[in-house]
Design a binder for these strands. Structure first.
Lengths: 184, 184
DNA sequence: GTCTATAAGACGATAGAC
DNA sequence: GTCTATCGTCTTATAGAC
């Protein structure tokens, strides 16, 4: 393929992401990443300038995914069907395509705040839930829209969700739709 | 007061909690904690056997708060009024009395998992949302009960809530009550 | 693009004096 | 209950050969 930098670079990202999500960023050493790839630490520094750089590249992947979803959503007509499809795509994004990134980000907040990536991500999410919110923007409606998105990510949360507690497929989406449905 | 161990011990807990919640556990050194208290690292080791021990003592505070709430809730009659009061007390617990503990825990998951405190906490929360859930335990009802609790903590979350986005007092409680109200 | 070797420093934790 | 001094280990990151 065209714009691909190198295979090793992608393998570093993948292994780093796994370890970051499981053991946390600070507790994952470059030695550990290198070992699992059967290369040396110095090799990593050829592909990434610093350890922090690896994180930025990982977050970028998720941001790109959110941007695509936002771009698509903005050119659709506002309808119940569109909202449903936005929620469905968001769920696929944060659970399947970029599940590990989401887990890593949500569970390593102090690190990501220090790296300055938390605010931009929050802005993307805010754009998203404004798209699925009805016209009236009273605080309760806004909170429900936030909760609709949270419902789709709750499996990641070890305190209020957690593994083994994920609802059957479709249930989270159903509850999310209720939350953004116009009041009656 | 009677069972109090020492003033320094409590000051260590307080300062450590502030730093853990802000910069994360791994990035907070004992040197930093000691400096802010104007003592030496060695002094900390008189009051706590290890750095990890400080964390356990902090989590214990939150667990005690949850246990009190659970004990109170269990001796109340099941009614709409009781549910409302449980949610109100939970909100006070996780936002006011133990807000920093909650932030620290939710944002340093890999560390707390390694320390083995995440599962017990999840169990307490599970007890709690079973108390506020109507009889029928279908997956959607269960998910809504979880979301009711999440609504009351959302201010902590930097991605879906975040500072400055906390709803006016009462709104979160209202939405939480909707979520646990019997369907009609 | 990957290696060996190493620099430079921070960290958690301990020993022992006071 | 707090101190000084130190130990051993691990870390990120770099220099330079191949």
């Amino acid at each position: 393929m065209a714009g691909r930098r190198s295979d090793t670079r992608e393998r570093i990202q993948q292994v780093a992401l796994e370890l970051f999500a499981e053991h946390g960023y600070e507790k994952t050493s470059l030695r550990e990443i290198a070992e699992r790839l059967a290369v040396t630490k110095a090799a990593l520094y050829y592909h990434f300038k610093t350890k922090e750089d690896i994180v930025h590249s990982l977050v970028e992947n998720l941001v790109d995914g959110l941007d695509e979803l936002l771009a698509w959503a903005k050119e659709q007509p506002r309808s119940q069907g569109t909202t449903e499809e936005v929620l469905r795509r968001f769920s696929a994004l944060v659970n399947d395509e970029h599940g590990p990134e989401m887990q890593f980000i949500q569970q390593n907040v102090p690190t990501l705040k220090k790296f300055g990536v938390m605010h931009p991500l929050g802005a993307k999410v805010r754009e998203l839930f404004q798209l699925i919110t009805a016209e009236d923007q009273d605080p309760a409606t806004e909170l429900r829209a936030r909760l609709a998105l949270v419902a789709l990510v709750l499996g990641i949360n070890p305190m209020f969700g957690g593994p083994g507690t994920a609802p059957p497929p479709g249930v989270a989406l159903q509850v999310a739709l209720e939350l953004v449905a116009p009041r009656g």
